[in-house]
Every structure is written in structure tokens, then in C-alpha cells.
């Protein structure tokens, strides 16, 4: 038997971390360099009006200026704090709600369409209502963020539970699991991929909703976030600053994906042997 076992299994080959880092980082960085170089070449050769098509150097200068007077750091820390806190609240609310919906069919039938509808509804649509309810305060921002993120998290979890193979539940029952043991040790871990996809989308919706809320709701007791920075650039007709801020928003999204979600997802897929053909 041992001989056959040896023949039928292959040792898992794991590439070293630095190799994986280079493979993952190099292509996007190269692309970025090429794009910026092309942009710079365009400004140098075509000489467009700098107020309509600022070059990379103008954008960098605008960002540097915002950094020097502290607006950039303030905006990033304010927005990140709100985004992360809002997302965590959404997880705390969405997870039990999703579990309840997944395990209790009548509630799912009743509430499911509404949750799916909310997921499609752009959460910016809530901004005017939120301003009327909560005024220009942080509550407005958080309300919009939660309305954006919670439906995605709930839907992800419900879909994850729905995709648990019935055979796994059957095995749990045969092994003598109680209802609670079945949920905690079999169904929930099996639903993890769907849940994680929901969390990822939930974060994306949080971040988008936050930016929208910060752009629209400006002033009052609302702090100064990245969206506010963007709005300020627009008021001053400072295109370099506007483009720079867009790049900052984009960069934060990419960094969170690379540092938080990608490693968690990769680890989970690898543990389950779901990496497929990707190295």
C-alpha cells in the first residue's frame, strides 16, 4: 500500500516567497512605469494646456503641496479610519444577519429580494436622505457606508452557505453532529469562500460609498476625507490636484486588496487545494 501511496501522490512544490513577490509585483510595476512615461512623453511632445491636461510632474507637485500643508495625510487617515470602522461595523451586522437568512428559509424568502435590491441600489442614493436625517455629521457618512457594505456581506454569506455540498452536511449528520456542531464545524467553514468574496465586495462598496458621501456631503461637522480633498480640487479648478487625489483613492484600494484580501484568499484556496493552474 505504501508503494502505491507514494506513486499516487506528488509532493507539493512551493515557490519561495521572494520569488512569488517578484512574480506578483514586477508586471504591474512595469506597466505603471510605462504608462507614466507615455503620459509624460505626451505632455512634453504635444504641449497641451496644463490646466486641462497636466503632466505627471504637475500631479506629483500638487500631491506634494497637499502633503506639505498636511491636508493629504489628514484626508487619508480620516477616510481610512471611516472606511475601516464602517466596514467592521458592516461585518458585525452583516454576518449574523447572513447566517440567520442562510439557515432560516422563510426569512430568506421574505428578505432575500430586498437585500439583493439594496445591493444593486447605488448607496450614493442614500446621501440626500442621510443628510436630511443626520445633518452634515459623521453619522451620515457611516450610514451610507453601511447601506453599501451590509447587503454584499449578507449575500456573500448566504450564497456561500447555499453552495455547501449537501454530502458534507450528510456526513456531519452521520458522524453525530448536533445542529450547532454541524453549523459551526461543517457549514460555516465550508461557506468560507463565498463569505470571503462577500467581504471583499463589501469592502469595495464601503470604500466607494465613502468617497461618494465625502464628495457630496461637505462641511458641517464632517471631517476632511479624501473625497473632500477631491471636491476641494474641483472648487479650485485644480485638475492636477483632482487627478492626484483620484490616483490616491485608487492606490489605497490596490494596497488594501494586496495587503489584506489577497493573502487571506490565497491562503484559504491553497489549504483547500483550489489553486488550480495558477502558480
Amino acid at each position: 500500500m505504501a508503494g502505491l501511496d507514494r506513486l499516487q501522490t506528488t509532493a507539493e512544490r512551493r515557490t519561495p516567497w521572494w520569488r512569488r513577490a517578484i512574480d506578483g509585483v514586477l508586471p504591474p510595476v512595469l506597466l505603471l512605469v510605462v504608462l507614466v512615461a507615455a503620459w509624460q512623453a505626451y505632455t512634453v511632445i504635444a504641449q497641451p494646456r496644463p490646466d486641462l491636461a497636466p503632466g505627471p510632474l504637475d500631479v506629483a507637485a500638487a500631491l506634494g503641496e497637499a502633503w506639505d500643508d498636511g491636508r493629504l495625510q489628514l484626508a487619508i487617515s480620516t477616510s481610512l479610519e471611516r472606511g475601516v470602522l464602517g466596514f467592521l461595523i458592516a461585518v458585525a451586522v452583516g454576518t449574523p444577519l447572513g447566517l440567520l437568512l442562510a439557515e432560516w428559509a422563510p426569512l430568506r424568502r421574505a428578505l432575500g429580494p430586498l437585500i439583493s435590491g439594496l445591493q444593486v441600489l447605488p448607496s450614493v442614493a442614500w446621501v440626500p436622505a442621510a443628510i436630511l436625517w443626520f445633518g452634515l455629521s459623521d453619522a451620515t457618512v457611516y450610514f451610507v457606508v453601511l447601506m453599501g457594505a451590509i447587503p454584499s456581506i449578507v449575500n456573500g454569506l448566504v450564497a456561500g452557505v447555499a453552495q455547501v455540498p449537501p454530502q458534507l452536511r450528510r456526513v456531519g449528520t452521520v458522524l453525530g453532529a448536533s445542529r450547532f456542531e454541524l453549523a459551526a464545524s461543517v457549514v460555516l467553514p465550508a461557506a468560507l469562500p463565498g463569505y470571503l468574496a462577500g467581504l471583499k465586495q463589501g469592502w469595495a462598496f464601503s470604500w466607494r460609498s465613502l468617497m461618494a458621501a465625502e464628495i457630496i456631503a461637505f462641511g458641517g461637522s464632517i471631517g476632511f476625507g479624501v473625497g473632500s480633498l477631491l471636491q476641494q480640487g474641483r472648487d479650485l479648478a485644480d485638475l492636477a490636484s483632482v487627478l492626484g487625489t483620484i490616483l490616491v483613492i485608487l492606490a489605497i484600494g490596490v494596497v488594501i486588496e494586496l495587503l489584506v484580501f489577497a493573502p487571506v484568499e490565497r491562503g484559504m484556496l491553497r489549504r483547500r487545494g483550489l489553486t488550480g493552474g495558477t502558480p
Binding site: Q167, R170, M268, R271
Partner: peptide
Amino acid sequence: FQEASLLPWLSARRNVELALRFG
């Protein structure tokens, strides 16, 4: 069963332990 139906996120040992933990 015909399929082994092991829980894919647990090691072989933890899969066996499951039967010793439940019920």
C-alpha cells in the same frame, strides 16, 4: 460513502478527530 467526503480544509488527522468530537 462512495465519495470520501472529507472536509477539505482539515488535515487527515483532524478529519478523523471530527468523529471523536461530535455528539
